[in-house]
Design a protein around this nucleic acid. Sequence first.
DNA 1: TCATAATATTTGAATATTATAATATTCAAA
DNA 2: TTTGAATATTATAATATTCAAATATTATGA
Lengths: 98, 98
Amino acid sequence: MNNEHNSERLEKAARCLRTMAHPLRLMIIHLLSQREYSVQELEKELGASQSSISQHLSLLKDKDILTSRRSAQQVFYRLHNPRMLDLITLTRELFCRD
Amino acid sequence: MNNEHNSERLEKAARCLRTMAHPLRLMIIHLLSQREYSVQELEKELGASQSSISQHLSLLKDKDILTSRRSAQQVFYRLHNPRMLDLITLTRELFCRD
DNA sequence: TCATAATATTTGAATATTATAATATTCAAA
DNA sequence: TTTGAATATTATAATATTCAAATATTATGA
């Protein structure tokens, strides 16, 4: 086992987990697991400010959790890797029972 | 869908994810997925201070991610739910490739 | 009881994260 | 080429997290 490498991987995993570890961002990932959403659709669903949502989307995109495409003035976001939902599902199973 | 309830669950899931989202804590969970460890064993493995490790263990225990048993002066920790390892494995698959 | 080993807690300074308000950018239609 | 709609960025105040040093607790053996 290469300890240097392993510890880098742990740090990366931790950073990515931390990025997901926010209620609004979990909800965004949950919604995007069904279909793509525009920013304004997310605003309506989540009832949060435009600025806040845009910043959360940006964090998720930086970590390659989401990708986006622009269509005229709108920007649509979707999951980069659909398996991301597995992580949320498992998280709920582990932490949201009882 | 009960939105109040759902948002509570998201917050709980986010809190638990946040608790896991630290390199040292991920490493602790990884080690404990093999067998139980005493605090001093973890100190040796992780090369962190006693205080720091004890604090991290305490956070993980608060969220019911770990349990502990005392044997004389030593305290042994183990995973509360072995499936916790699945979460780490999946996290690595999703975030630590390429 | 006293000394010591193992672990836990408290404290405080450094750093990171969050939400909001204000401003900037990007694009399309007029 | 200006206007307005949609989104992004910046700045910043409030809050949370982290780490290590100091101190406290708990259990054992002399």
